[in-house]
């Protein structure tokens, strides 16, 4: 069931994203009329509404959107890079590295941007570690990269369990929320949004080349693709996207695996279309999930990763079942 009008599909995704943003800004402990939301966004509204929307809800809304977009684009890139539909942004141990960084910072009593910075450093360290090890004596293949990443991720997993087992009880809830993805501590959304837009713009002219790469690296080389530099670029970009996402929201699972697949089932596998579609679709999914996460048992909040999985799993299975 590939939609014939593929540009129309992008239009639909833009529309859905706008509806999700409006809903996220309207819904909460103080419900607002969507009309008020629009008027605040265009400079109107009263003092209270302005504070509520611009200072409280908008940063979190944009952070959620950016996180989802980053993860979905990173997942689409990893799947092309590894020619493996099971690849996701975390498969190469990125989330594990980031989690170790963040958890150590929390154990040390740090908070705010120090936790984020530590997570970013952990993700980058993991990236370099995996790539360096997979590179080995000079020949890395997608299979070797994948295997190295999976094993490194398992190592991080063990260390995470160790940290959780030995952590003081008072620190455990914060650590667990971080591990399941949590947007309530997200800071300024602009760095994440900027990275998302910049990477999508950079990738657009590479779209057709990535399509050829998805056919296998030897086939791509024969058709004129300089495979090795391109693979390096894709790996580094995907790592950067994931690190920024993890830094913003902790480890939100599942988005990077499922959103690209869902969209491929709907609109085919042209990267020029899939990558922007992932940015929009992933952003919308996480934004809706985060909106649900903060209202469903208000005033308590759920970790957003739980909701993305609960919403995404049945949708994905349904699409997979319907596909040829």
């Amino acid at each position: 069931m590939i939609i014939s009008d593929r540009r129309g599909a992008l239009g639909v995704l833009v529309l859905l994203a706008m509806v999700a943003v409006a809903a996220s800004l309207s819904v909460g402990s103080v419900p607002l009329h969507p009309g008020d939301v629009v008027s605040v966004l265009f400079g109107g509204g009263d003092e209270l509404q302005r504070t509520l929307i611009l200072d409280l809800r908008l940063p979190r809304t944009l952070s959620a959107f950016a996180t989802g977009g980053l993860l979905a684009v990173a997942g689409a890139l990893m799947q092309v890079l590894l020619r493996n539909p099971l690849a996701d942004p975390y498969v190469l141990g990125l989330s594990g590295g980031a989690a170790i960084g963040a958890l150590l910072a929390m154990l040390g009593g740090l908070a705010g941007w120090l936790v984020s910075g530590s997570a970013f450093a952990g993700a980058m360290l993991s990236t370099l570690l995996v790539f360096g090890l997979a590179h080995g004596s000079g020949s890395w293949t997608p299979a070797r990269l994948l295997l190295t990443g999976v094993v490194v991720a398992a190592g991080w997993g063990a260390m995470i369990t160790l940290l959780l087992a030995t952590a003081p009880t008072s620190r455990l809830p914060g650590m667990l929320y971080w591990l399941m993805g949590d947007l309530s501590h997200a800071g300024s959304p602009w760095p994440a949004l900027l990275v998302l837009v910049a990477v999508c713009a950079l990738l657009f002219p590479l779209g057709r080349t990535l399509n050829v790469l998805a056919r296998g690296h030897v086939q791509a080389a024969v058709l004129g693709v300089s495979v090795r530099p391109l693979e390096w670029l894709v790996y580094l970009l995907a790592s950067l996207l994931t690190s920024v996402a993890v830094t913003t929201a902790g480890t939100v699972g599942f988005v990077g695996l499922v959103v690209p697949h869902m969209l491929r089932l709907l609109i085919g596998n042209d990267q020029r279309l899939i990558l922007p579609a992932c940015a929009l679709g992933g952003g919308t999914l996480v934004l809706v999930a985060d909106t649900v996460a903060r209202v469903v048992i208000a005033p308590e909040q759920l970790p957003v990763g739980v909701i993305t999985a609960l919403m995404g799993v049945p949708t994905f299975l349904y699409l997979l079942y319907r596909s040829r």
Binding site: Q79, R83, R215, G216, V218, R264, N269
Partner: peptide, 13 residues
């Protein structure tokens, strides 16, 4: 141009 002996079809096309 080269016609390969093996075909790797990673993603549906």
């Amino acid at each position: 141009g080269l016609v390969f002996q093996e075909h790797q079809d990673g993603f549906p096309a």
